[in-house]
Design a protein around this nucleic acid. Structure first.
Lengths: 264, 264
DNA sequence: AACATTTGTTTCGTAATGCGGAACAACACT
DNA sequence: AGTGTTGTTCCGCATTACGAAACAAATGTT
């Protein structure tokens, strides 16, 4: 027995194509696409035609491969234009980047990942290469730990169960280890990541949000490992949490924080 | 007699919702949305349900208004991950930003606009606020002039005919004036914008691309007006065109320039 | 508090529309 | 020329989206 959702199945299938293209590291040839989605060629062709007509994908004229269009970026970036968080964090991040020579990033939750939506400064970390739209697992990032610390026990367990990939030898993949980490984060009000994602770099992050335990975003600072020391951690964590606090205030104590509209 | 496109009309209509939400400066209430699209409420409701199920939009629980989701940003940012241009320009832009204290931006063509897809450094210009995804008319930006200079006579005329908005008193809205500007751009290999979009700032831009006359992107540098002088223009335009040249080389002489895949 | 009004959601019969097998076309690569 | 690979079009069938109207819920007004 099928559960009849009220959504349009044909359209959902079409949007799967977008999803697939976003996931794939490279452009996709047409037959690949049909194969990966396990749909007949004729149908896949119709879906692609539709997305082309909507200007969301284009096909490279020579290779005939499909890829996301610049217009797709524009549509997606509408999220930034509407996002109170982005606006609230903009200047605090800038200030933080001026104080410490590293990469300051803003991450939000997207499904079970941290999605980085803004980045200022540059530490040299490859981390920060594709700064907007980069997505990372929660367990391997400082920002991710901030979100995990705001989640229920079950959610944490579910996510950790799927987090198998070890980026470095320090990546946390054990549930019990992560739970310890989480209580630490809740106590200290910031999260730390030392070479758990990228060798040679350490990261501190703090949560942004109206209420204490459910962060809407996280501000993180990535620095070369050379500058890592207990004393430094104290001063720098103060700066990061301060930036996060300022962003939280900017967000407004109530539900609003007005979106930014057209600028200027 | 209708021309029967092979695309799926129902899906196209659904994607119009995304388009609308991206265009609108603020989140949209449900009835507004139906009104603006001129479709019956019941249908609009189905479209929204579909987009929610696809994780591309969300509705604010309290206000019940619809807005683009962070996931939509992720999908759209797939363009960046696939874009050879973004990758090719990344380091040249960084270098340029180190040499001159201003905002370096990377713009591509999206329909009849410049779409900024990357930004490094910060000049204080509000210009650079929503750095990724910001869209501007071609006639009012230095990058836009680069693209106009690569277009056919007819396209230039069509676009200029629609470019009525004067951001400042210097904004170019006349076709003949723009044609002069374009020949200038073609000769100098860079474009200039002095307070035509933003009072208090001037901008230089140069084209990135394999072949000379059809730029795939433009690198621009925004500076406070205080630093504007003929001598400065000579040195700075050299830096900007140099960065653009480096990016062009990185792009590869042939059609490829390999997309970036997952990073690192 | 009762009524009026705007806003959001569900139902359901109809017909339009997306479906996909198969045939066709356009290239590569032997 | 031959053979495989990949991209595009046809067309009859049944599934799916359509939208008026009825219903539900929240907000504003007297």
């Amino acid at each position: 027995m099928k559960k009849a959702s009220t959504a349009m199945s044909s359209t959902l299938r079409c949007l799967k194509v977008l999803e697939l293209l976003a996931e794939e590291p490279f452009e996709l040839s047409f037959t690949d696409l049909a194969a990966k989605l396990e749909i007949p060629k004729a149908s896949a062709h119709r879906l692609c035609t539709t997305l082309i007509e909507a200007n969301l994908i284009v096909q490279e004229p020579v290779t005939r491969r499909y890829m996301l269009s610049s217009h797709a970026l524009w549509v997606g970036s509408g999220y930034l234009r509407h996002s109170p968080i982005y606006r609230a964090a903009f200047f605090p991040m800038q200030e933080l980047a001026r104080q410490v020579p590293g990469t300051v990033q803003l991450g939000v939750l997207d499904q079970d990942y941290v999605l980085f939506i803004h980045s200022v400064g540059y530490s040299g970390a490859p981390h920060a290469f594709a700064d907007v739209g980069l997505r990372r697992p929660l367990n391997a990032t400082a920002s991710g730990k901030i979100f995990l610390a705001g989640m229920s026990q079950e959610d944490v367990e579910r996510i950790m169960a799927k987090s198998a990939e070890k980026y470095t030898s320090s990546t946390i993949t054990s549930i019990v280890k992560m739970k310890q980490e989480i209580t630490q984060v809740r106590k200290m009000r910031y999260a730390r990541n030392v070479e758990e994602l990228l060798p040679g770099y350490w990261v501190l992050a703090a949560g942004v949000g109206r209420q204490e335990n459910s962060p809407a975003a996280a501000i993180s600072l990535t620095l070369p490992l050379g500058e890592f020391s207990p004393e430094n951690e104290i001063t720098i964590s103060a700066l990061v949490t301060d930036a996060a606090r300022k962003a939280s205030l900017q967000l407004g104590p109530n539900g609003a924080g007005r979106s930014m509209g057209t600028w200027p």
